[in-house]
Structure formats: C-alpha cells, structure tokens
C-alpha cells in the first residue's frame, strides 16, 4: 500500500505496557506520519525506550493499540514485526559483538526481499564498513559500531525506523554524521521515530516532538512551534 507523506503511518493509542508486573506506560498516544522525523522527548525513565520496545513487540502490551499501516502490531509475535519493514536501532547499539560486520549485516538482511540492493545502499551510506567486513563487531570503534547499528537496521529496507538515542556517547563529528544520515533517510522517504536527549539534535532534524512524562503523552509540538515553546523543553527535560 502506498503511504503518502503526512498520512499517518504509525498510530499508537492508549498504550499500556511494562516489564512483568512493573508498568511503565500508562496510556501513551502519538502518531508518526509517512516521511517525517518524529521525536519522543522526556526525562530518563519516562517510558520513551519502552514505547519503542512495545512497537517492536519486545515488551508486553497490556492494553491499547499500535497500528502500522493497516496492521495491528500488538497481535503479532516480535519476529514478525521486522517483516512489516520496521527497523530498530536500539540504545547502546546492541550489536552481535562476536559476529563479524558481514554477519551482523546478514542478520539484518534475513527478512529483506532485495538483499543485494540493500547491501549496496548500506555501503554507499557507510563505505567504511566495507573495509571492516571480516572484523568482529565488538572490536570496532564507537562511531563504527553506531554506523553498523544503523546499517543493520537499514538492511530491513525499513519504511519506519526507530532510533533510541543514536548519538549517545559519540564524539561531535560522529553526531554530525548520524544527523546527516537521519536527514538523508528522511529525504529517501523513511519515517523516523527518534528518542533523543540532545535538544539541539532534535531541533535540527525533527518535524514533530511528543513529550512523554511518567508513561503518558503530555504535549506535542510541530517544528515551527519549537522556538516559541522553549519552556516546554525545559519543563519536560529539565534543561
């Protein structure tokens, strides 16, 4: 199905989720439109990462709905969600550290219908990875590991990409590289749901921001409203 820009691609409604008996999300609501960069902002422990995990089926949803295009994701097992072409770049990268760069990419390509094309695209974006194919992922530098995490997710040929603090712990040159990659993906029509703590990064790339506090949606802003509402950033991020 063709998803037009500005048409809702992901719809999260009244989402309640948590880890075992510990509830983290208490009725989260937001949507991501086709081709936009949507950012979830909030303090540590607000439930942003849990929201991404719930979308990927890695955290049990107790009530609520997560609709991607026409599919209800809460009914799907976790391993079927990447087949909907939703990619995840998790916090801390979580590469398969004992596997080589090539093997990490092969894992990413497992659900792809066009593995050769995706491989070429990934190496165009990150040519440095091509030089490290036989190196174990755990031995790469922090920046290279982040490139591999992005590349592995891109192998799924995602329509929607979930990024959990992709610039965490990176030096400024690498942050710029990742920010450029996000912009390039957006230009390619990939919708991006970004969890990020760096307000400057958010302001430079996001089309919309949803503020999350105590597992609930508390505010939402469009890009042209950022400057006039700096106080909201301060309130919910403490900056």
């Amino acid at each position: 199905m063709l998803i037009l820009a500005h048409q809702s691609m992901l719809e999260v409604s009244n989402l309640h989720a948590g880890y075992g008996k510990v509830r983290v999300l208490f009725g989260l609501n937001f949507n991501v439109k086709g081709g936009e960069v949507h950012c979830l902002l909030g303090r540590n422990g607000a439930g942003k990462s849990t929201a991404l995990k719930a979308i990927m089926g890695l955290v049990k949803t107790t009530t609520g709905s997560i609709k991607f295009e026409d599919s209800e994701l809460t009914h799907l097992p976790a391993h079927d969600i990447p087949k909907q072409r939703i990619g995840l770049i998790p916090q801390g990268r979580r590469l398969f550290s004992e596997l080589t760069v090539a093997e990490n990419l092969r894992v990413g390509l497992m659900t792809s219908d066009t593995p050769e094309r995706q491989e070429i695209r990934v190496f165009e974006l990150f040519p440095r990875l091509q030089e490290r194919l036989q190196q174990k992922a755990g031995t790469l530098s922090g920046g290279e590991q982040q490139m591999l995490a992005v590349a592995r997710a891109l192998c799924l040929e995602p329509k929607l990409l979930l990024l959990d603090e992709p610039t965490e712990g990176l030096q400024p040159t690498m942050v710029a590289l990742i920010t450029d990659a996000i912009s390039q993906l957006k230009n390619d029509g990939v919708a991006i749901l970004l969890v990020e703590q760096h307000v400057d990064t958010v302001i430079s790339v996001a089309d919309r921001v949803t503020f999350v506090d105590n597992g609930r949606t508390v505010a939402s802003l469009k890009a042209n409203e950022f400057e006039d509402n700096r106080d909201i950033f301060s309130t919910y991020l403490g900056v």
């Binding site: 990927m56 890695l58 391993h79 079927d80 998790p90 398969f96 092969r106 894992v107 799924l156």
Partner: peptide, 19 residues
C-alpha cells in the same frame, strides 16, 4: 547464524526477524 545471533542477544535477534 540465527543460532549464534540468538545466543548473543535473543531480544535483538527477535527484533531482526529471527523466530
């Protein structure tokens, strides 16, 4: 490869479509 990826991080293996 599926087995080795699952051994290293089963949650991430799921997130990349490994049953």
């Amino acid at each position: 490869l599926m087995m080795r990826a699952t051994q290293m991080d089963s949650e991430m293996a799921s997130a990349f479509g490994i049953p």
